[in-house]
Amino acid sequence: MSVSIVAKGEVVTAFLDGEIDHHTAAEIRTTIDEAVYEHKPTLLVLDFKNVSFMDSSGIGLVMGRYKTISELDGELAIINTSPCIGKVMRLAGMERLAKIGMEELANEQA
């Protein structure tokens, strides 16, 4: 698992790569939160393009980042989810917290 961060203007994008489970979640959380506290973006984008697996530990991770960015009055977007990842996101009702699949919007603002 690896995370790379791109900060551009008011937008921080975290490109996630690999599998998200309880074993890998802690490190991802630390990397994203450090970037968010440093740049204080108005939009945090989580890019799932290269995420091949995610379970409920990933849901916990996304909900936690929603809390972090909300405390800074920013918004959360989730992009490029595969059908399998989308299924887990929907079960958790993530679409109520985050903009899901707004690839164009994220690109526009990035």
Partner: peptide
């Protein structure tokens, strides 16, 4: 912490 309580639901 960051457990969602959704494991059994999944």
């Amino acid at each position: 912490g960051e457990r969602s309580g959704l494991g059994f639901s999944v």
